[in-house]
């Protein structure tokens, strides 16, 4: 391997540092992520007020462990979206910058020197598990859509409540987030070298092209789905506790 010796001619003390407000993005990220994490842990630990017919909080969907699990049922599910988001290529960029300062922003100096190993050692080598969390997240999307369809049924009659719209928005945005994922893009067609001579190659290229378009907005889906999950859980929680009512139209 080739190495180079960098000249100390321009010392770091002299070299200009960018003066723009580069810290605003990382600061907002830290605040939003910490607030969401505190709320998510609190909401998952409650184990109550997560279901009010026909709505189910997305933190608890699907409800598992009834009858044998003594802690909050959310703990049996929440590790899937947590693992999917923590290993997400977009979110990795965001938290490496915001929480680890690695780098805090482009062309800003860092202090860790030669000890940096990136994602080549434990624990960050586990980022390679992202595709497995993707497979589980796809199952979770199916379950969320099932719960969303259930939210249109009020005592056997079709209807739309405000909670239905919250759950519908959550299912749509979560689907957008999962199906715009870089690993999904690779799975559906990115792994091929030759579309014209592969089995289903043309069809896979069409799917890959559409997923690529969605992938350009992956970061937006990430944040929108995060906010949608939070809003849907909060609404169901307030409704179940009796703090608010649910405006609805039943046909």
């Amino acid at each position: 391997m080739i190495t180079q010796t960098r000249s100390p001619a321009v010392s770091s003390a002299v070299r200009p540092i960018r003066q723009d407000a580069w810290w605003v993005g990382p600061l907002i990220t830290v605040v939003v992520v910490v607030v969401f994490a505190v709320y998510a842990v609190w909401a998952a630990a409650q184990g109550t007020n997560y279901r009010v017919e026909p709505y189910l909080s997305p933190f608890y969907s699907p409800v598992l462990g009834e009858g044998w699990w003594t802690l909050s049922p959310a703990f049996l599910v929440i590790w899937i979206p947590l693992g999917f988001r923590l290993t997400c290529y977009y979110f990795r960029k965001t938290y490496y910058r915001s929480f680890f300062g690695d780098p805090p922003a482009c062309a800003l100096p860092e202090r860790r020197g030669a000890s940096y190993t990136g994602e080549s050692r434990f624990p960050f080598i586990l980022q390679n598990l992202h595709r497995y969390f993707l497979y589980l997240a796809i199952l979770l999307v199916v379950v969320h859509w099932y719960e969303t369809i259930q939210a249109f049924v009020f005592d056997g009659r079709f209807g739309i409540g405000l909670g239905t719209l919250f759950l519908l928005a959550e299912a749509v945005l979560l689907s957008g987030y999962v199906f715009s994922c870089h690993s999904f893009r690779h799975l559906v067609g990115g792994c091929l070298d030759c579309y014209s001579h592969s089995a289903l190659g043309r069809a896979r290229h069409r799917v890959w092209s559409r997923v690529s378009l969605m992938n350009e907005r992956h970061h937006l889906y990430f944040w929108a789905s995060l906010i949608a999950v939070w809003a849907a859980d909060l609404y169901v929680r307030l409704l179940a506790s009796g703090a608010i009512g649910d405006p609805r139209i039943i046909f």
Partner: peptide, 9 residues
């Protein structure tokens, strides 16, 4: 390639 932590600069 594992040294890249995809911070996109």
């Amino acid at each position: 390639i594992a040294y890249c932590n995809i911070t996109k600069c």
